[in-house]
Simulated scan of single mutants.
Amino acid sequence: MFNRPALTDIVARTRGDLLTRLTQDELLRRADAEINTRVLAGASHEIHGYLDWISLQIIYDTADDELLVRWASIWKVERKDAQFASGNVLVTGTAGQTIEAGSVLKRPDGALFDVTADTVLGASATAVPVLAEVAGVAGNTDAGMQLTFLNPIANVQSVVVVDSNKLANGSDIESIPDLRARFIERIQNPPSGGAADDYVEWAKEVPGVTRAWVYPKEMGAGTVTVRFVRDDDPTIIPDPTEVAAVKSYIDSKRPVTADLYVVAPTPVTLNFNIQLTPSTVAVKGAVEASLRDLLLREAAPGVTLLISHIREAISTAAGETDNVLISPTTNQVYTTGQMPVFGAISWV
C-alpha cells in the first residue's frame, strides 16, 4: 500500500538533503535555501498526492465512481441505466373514439405518463398503453391508481385507472455501491457456460433486480429455477411483468438445453414485538433500520433466519441499552420459495 508522506516530512527531507550539500560559507551566502526547500517540498507533496490517488484507482474496490464505471465496462459489466415504468390504463369513453399516441396523463403527485400508441376505445373500459415521462422507480404505479388526462379529450372520461398489472419495470440508475459489488462478484465468479452463478449474474443484469438466487433441478432433471427481488421498489417482490422481463433476458443468455423457470419468491410477513430501553423515537428508528438491514443481508427464499441474529440486530442498534424480544422466540424457518419480508414492530 502506498503511504503518502506528510508535507512536514517532505520539507524536513528536502532541507536535510540540501544542507548536507552546502558548506558553512555557502549557507551564509545563500540564505534563501529554506525558501527553496519549501518550494521544492510543496511541489513534491502534490506529486505524492497524485501517486496516492492513483494507488486507489488501480484497485477495483477503492476506485472513484467514474473510473469504476470504466473498469467495470472493460470487464463487460455495464452500469444499469434507469428504466421507464410502463403498463396500461383503463380508459372509458364513446366507442370508436381514438386516444392518440402522445396524449399525457397526470398522477395526483404530478408525475406524467405518455400514451405510446393510438388506441380506439371499445364499448367498455379499454386498455391504453402508457410510459412514464421520467425514468426511475418513482414511475411505478399501483393498480387502481387514478390518473387524469392533462388535456381533456372529447367523449372520453378524464379520469382513468391503472389496470391490474400496474405500471411497472421502472428503476433508478444502478448505484455505485451496487455496481461495485456486482463487478467484484463477476471477477470472483467468472462465467462458466451456464453454471449456477451465471444465472444469478444474468438475473442481476436486468435493471431493477438487486438480489437473485438459483435452484438447480427444483422442477426436475434439466431444470433451473431462478428467484429474485427488487429491493429499491416499494414492494421487493416482483410482479408478473417483471418476472417475465427477467425470464426473457436470461433466455437470451442461457444454454439451450436447460428448462428455465423464473418465479417470484412467496413473501411471508415477519412481525416483531419488542420491549425497548430507552423507548425513544430515535432508538426505535435505529432498531427498525437494523432489523431491515438484517433482512436485506440474510433473507432469501427457503432460508432459516436465526433468532440469535434477530436479537443481535436489536442489541446493536444505536442508542439501545436493553431489550426484550417478546416475539418471535425461535428460529424462523421458511420452506421452498418462501421468503421473510419486514412487516411491523409492536412496542411494549
Rank of each mutant, 00 (worst) to 15 (best):
P216H: 02
A12P: 07
W53C: 01
A154E: 05
A6F: 07
D32N: 13
R297A: 15
G194P: 05
Q157H: 12
V287N: 09
V246K: 00
F113W: 03
T210V: 05
H48C: 06
T141A: 04
S346I: 03
I250M: 02
D9T: 10
I54L: 15
I47W: 09
L179I: 01
P267R: 05
A264T: 03
G87S: 12
A132T: 13
A63Q: 03
A313E: 03
S279Q: 12
T126C: 08
L68E: 11
V206A: 08
E312A: 14
G170P: 00
E288A: 06
G139T: 04
G285L: 03
I307D: 11
A135Y: 06
E78T: 12
K204S: 09
T235E: 13
S327Y: 14
R211M: 12
S192F: 07
V303Y: 08
V161W: 04
V333L: 01
A63W: 01
D64E: 14
G16Q: 09
G144E: 01
V209C: 10
V160D: 11
D64N: 13
I184D: 10
M219P: 00
R79H: 09
Q275N: 13
T92V: 15
A289G: 09
V91H: 02
G285E: 11
L90W: 04
G222V: 01
W202C: 04
V268R: 06
I74C: 07
W75A: 14
Q57T: 00
F84T: 03
T98G: 01
A125W: 04
G87Q: 05
S124K: 13
Y60C: 07
E66H: 11
R4E: 02
Q57N: 01
E205F: 00
P340G: 11
S103H: 06
T269N: 03
I54S: 01
I250C: 00
T98F: 00
E34I: 06
D9A: 14
L68V: 09
R38T: 11
